[in-house]
């Protein structure tokens, strides 16, 4: 019965030490009884292949041992949907925009492209992968801790339907938001347009930061975008429900903004810094320009995403209406 002993040894390996002998003894007895039964049926001793078949039918030692162990999941069935949701949010809000911005900067910014293609790209993606692994690990550890604590922390019992978020109506526009957009759009618009017109950001005791003259050409484009945005917010304030036209206007404004920002990424340098110390001025100028280029690229990606979402909502609402009309007609 060497095969049986080997099988039992392999099963024992996966069992907790204090239960190993007890479980193995009972398992051995069950297998021996089965072998005895089989011997009686055949009227002879079992061949090695027959014992092998019998053990194979019981399953791999790991599987057999696992049946005696309490079920332990790193993240259980209950938390799994939330875990996937958070991972998707991380993917959508960090990794996907990161890649989109990187591609955008390489397309539109020659100075960025000079340092971030070839070997630079490998370094960039190494950083991205390292951050992705860290994000995945952190999310997994947090959920594993919640999984362990969920029973004792009152997570399952301390809740109320009153604390659930209100029913969301994606067609409803919050008047407070529209009001805020009008005020903020006006203040930001005036500040940004004034800078584009005068090209001076600051000039205090020898420290001068100004926009490159090339940015002056963007004044009218931003004026149009600002006016359109404020007009849309005002229309939304008066009529706080999304219509197809309102959504289409929002999509158009966002695509236009994305286009202007994408062109802005190419303007290098966008900012000129004058300091008493020329070396410090160069470093500050380079840092400011890179930050601006990345910000414009991120802004462009965000605007494309918002425009895309609005187009998708128009499309799905049209499809829903057509299906409803078809059903009514039928």
């Amino acid at each position: 019965m060497e095969l049986l002993d080997r099988y039992l040894q392999a099963v024992k390996f996966w069992l907790p030490v204090e239960q190993q002998d007890d479980i193995a003894a009972e398992l051995a007895e069950d297998i021996r009884s089965q072998v005895e039964d089989r011997k009686e049926q055949l009227g002879r001793d079992l061949k090695e292949e027959e014992v092998e078949a019998l053990l194979k039918q019981r399953g791999r030692p790991l599987v057999v041992a696992q049946q005696y162990l309490p079920q332990r999941d790193l993240i259980g069935k209950m938390l799994l949907p939330a875990y996937w949701f958070v991972l998707k949010v991380v993917l959508l809000c960090y990794l996907a925009p990161w890649v989109a911005v990187w591609i955008g900067l390489n397309i539109f910014s020659p100075s960025y492209r000079a340092h971030h293609l070839g070997l630079g790209a490998i370094t960039d993606f190494y950083v991205l992968m390292a951050n992705a692994v860290i994000a995945f690990t952190v999310v997994t550890i947090v959920f594993a801790v919640i999984e362990r604590l969920k029973d004792s922390s009152g997570f399952l019992t301390n809740w109320s339907p009153r604390k659930l978020p209100p029913v969301r109506n994606i067609d409803r526009i919050s008047r407070a938001n529209s009001g805020f957009e009008i005020i903020f759009g006006f203040i930001f618009g005036v500040w940004w347009l004034k800078m584009l017109w005068a090209l001076t950001v600051m000039d205090i005791s020898g420290v001068a930061v100004s926009l490159a003259p090339a940015l002056h050409g963007f004044f009218w484009a931003f004026l149009l975008i600002t006016v359109a945005n404020i007009a849309l917010s005002a229309a939304n304030f008066v009529r706080p429900y999304w219509t197809r036209t309102q959504r289409a206007v929002k999509a158009a404004i966002n695509f236009a903004t994305a286009g202007v920002l994408a062109v802005l990424v190419r303007v290098q340098p966008a900012v000129i810094v004058n300091l008493p110390n020329t070396r410090s001025a160069q470093v500050a100028e380079a840092t400011l320009n890179l930050t601006l280029a990345i910000s414009f690229a991120i802004g462009s990606v965000v605007c494309v995403a918002i425009g895309g979402i609005e187009l998708w909502r128009i499309y799905s609402a049209t499809r829903k209406r057509a299906r409803l009309q078809h059903r009514v007609a039928a």
């Binding site: 479980i23 009972e26 398992l27 019981r58 057999v64 049946q67 005696y68």
Partner: peptide, 9 residues
Amino acid sequence: EGTLYPLLR
């Protein structure tokens, strides 16, 4: 047996 013995325990 994989169901019975763990159940007995």
